[in-house]
Structure formats: C-alpha cells, structure tokens
C-alpha cells in the first residue's frame, strides 16, 4: 500500500521539487564527489593538496595499523548497535503501549537531554567515570567497592558513551513503527493459540522490524564515525576510524588520506547495510536508505 502512495503524487511538478534537487546537489552530491576526488590527490608539502592523481592514499590504508583500526571500529559498532537494540527496542515498544499522557511524558524525558550540548552531556559522563568521580564515590559509599574503579579512559566507558548517545534514535524509530501497530493483531495471535512470546515473535516483532532496522542503520553508521566519544571517554586507549580521520585532517593536515579513509568507511557501512537488507529482506526501512 505504501508503494502505491508513492507513485504519482499529484501536484508535485518539476518546479516544486527543484529546490529539493538543488539542495541535494549542492549540499550532498557535490561534497561527496569532492571527497571522492580528493582521495585520489596528493598531499602538498605544507598545506592543502596538489592536483596529482595517485593511489597512494588507498594503499596506505592497507597498513596493519589502519586495517586494525577499521576492525576495532567495526567490532565496537556491532557491540554498540547490539546494546542499543537491547535498551532501545523495549523502551520504544512499551512507550507505544502507554496512553497518550504517559507517552508525552516519556517522550519529554527523551527530549530534555537534547536541549543540552552533546559535548556537555559527554563531560557529564567524564565526571561520572573519573577516578574518585561520582560513580566511584557512590559505590564506595554503598560499600560495594573499596577502591576507585577508574573507569574513565577504558573500553567500557566508550561503549557506555556510545550507547548513551545513540539509543534515542533507536527508541524513536522503534516507537514510530510500534505506534502504528494494530494491537488487535497481537490479540488475534493470542486468540489463535500463541503464547505471549510466540505472538511477540511472529507478529509484533515482524511488524516492527522496519522500525528496528532503521534504528540499526541510524545507530550503526554514526557509531563507525563518532570520534569525540572515543576521545573523551577512551583517551588514547580506544582509537577508531573516526579518530584517525579527525587526526589526519586536523593535526596532520593530510586531507587526501583523510578523504580516502572516509570513502572506505562509507563503502564499508553501505556494504553492511546492503547485506543486512539482503538477509532480512526488508526493503522499506521506513523511508530511510
């Protein structure tokens, strides 16, 4: 039914969609092409690039150090996405089951942190995890631990930060598809002999899969590229592709190499999403991708 709607929408002439095309060309297509071209150019001695085509940038990525960074980032992205599903799916699902008053409250609870700069929120985690920080003091006060945990600048701290930053996106997309769910179908499944769990798996989960998948896309892609979380909460212990790109661009001023890394990262994420869609056979990711 959705597909039918998309066809032949009346009133959308070429002129009315022109601004949209222009916007896309200027702000999406052009930068992407520029990035792609940049990745084949040569770095200048001091600043900028020279117009000399080369494959050196891509060959440089094959260096074990960078390959390893890709693998580590990939692992972290998968771990993050998995945890985000575990936290975000139930939240979105139960929020859709609440009455409208409670929905609004839960939604507000999600929105409030967004009013604060994401960097500030991250510093909140820094104070939390720091040796003798809020968490340590709290746990020591309760007598659960005797010594500070020193969680800051560890892998788990980065994971927590990532999950924290990305869960809202999962919640929103799961909620949006769970909200549209006709609960009488779940009742029908129960009526036809399905246990709560069976009804959930065969009906609810299947029908909210588009939301879950778009949530996965919204989580997985950023978690490959987010650099400031790894930097602030992981120190130099956790280095991700995003960190390398940022470093190459801002510190080493090696733009072509940073561009090449970005292109590979993009290709990799696109491939993962492509695979994911193939496996799950869900074509419609709620309008995403």
């Amino acid at each position: 039914m959705k597909k039918k709607k998309r066809k032949n929408r009346p009133g959308l002439s070429i002129f009315s969609i022109l601004p949209l095309y222009l916007f896309t060309i200027v702000f999406v297509a052009f930068p992407l092409i520029y990035l792609f071209v940049l990745s084949f150019l040569t770095r200048a001695e001091t600043w900028g690039v020279v117009n000399q085509l080369t494959l050196k940038n891509y060959l440089g990525i094959l260096d074990p150090i960078y390959l390893n960074t890709f693998i580590e980032s990939f692992k972290l992205a998968i771990l993050t996405t998995g945890l985000v599903i575990l936290v975000g799916y139930p939240y979105g699902y139960f929020m859709a089951k609440l009455n409208s008053d409670w929905r609004r409250r839960m939604m507000l609870l999600l929105m409030i942190p967004f009013w604060i700069s994401s960097l500030m929120r991250l510093f909140g985690w820094v104070t939390m995890f720091r040796a003798n920080g809020v968490l340590d003091k709290f746990l020591m006060m309760l007598g659960i631990i005797d010594e500070p945990l020193k969680l800051l600048y560890t892998y788990p701290a980065v994971v927590v930060g990532m999950v924290y930053a990305l869960t809202p996106f999962m919640i929103f997309s799961v909620y949006s598809s769970a909200e549209k769910l006709d609960w009488s179908m779940v009742e029908a499944a129960r009526d036809l002999g399905a246990t709560r769990w069976k009804a959930f798996v065969t009906v609810t989960l299947k029908l909210t899969l588009p939301g879950l998948l778009s949530g996965v896309v919204l989580t997985f892609i950023p978690s490959m590229g987010l650099f400031y979380i790894a930097e602030l909460l992981g120190g130099n212990k956790v280095v991700l592709v995003g960190n390398v790109i940022q470093e190459q661009l801002m510190k080493s001023h090696n733009w072509p190499f940073a561009a090449a890394l970005s292109v590979v990262l993009m290709a990799l994420t696109s491939f993962v999403i492509f695979l994911y869609r193939k496996i799950t056979k869900v074509k419609d990711l709620e309008g995403l991708v």
Binding site: M185, E187, A188, R190, D191, T195
Partner: peptide, 28 residues
C-alpha cells in the same frame, strides 16, 4: 490465558496478519 481456551474470535476489523499471505494466515 486466551491461547489455552478452545475459543476463537473473528475480529471486527478481521485483524489479518498483513505480513502473511492467505495460506499463512489461515494456517497460523
């Protein structure tokens, strides 16, 4: 629980499973 009763319902809006074909719906 509803699943342990030998009673079935034809719902007002039919509540057919939209992601299953007729065969799969009927055989559910």
């Amino acid at each position: 629980e509803p699943n342990t009763r030998n009673v079935n319902t034809v719902f007002q809006n039919y509540a057919l499973f939209p992601h299953m074909n007729v065969e799969a719906n009927v055989g559910y």
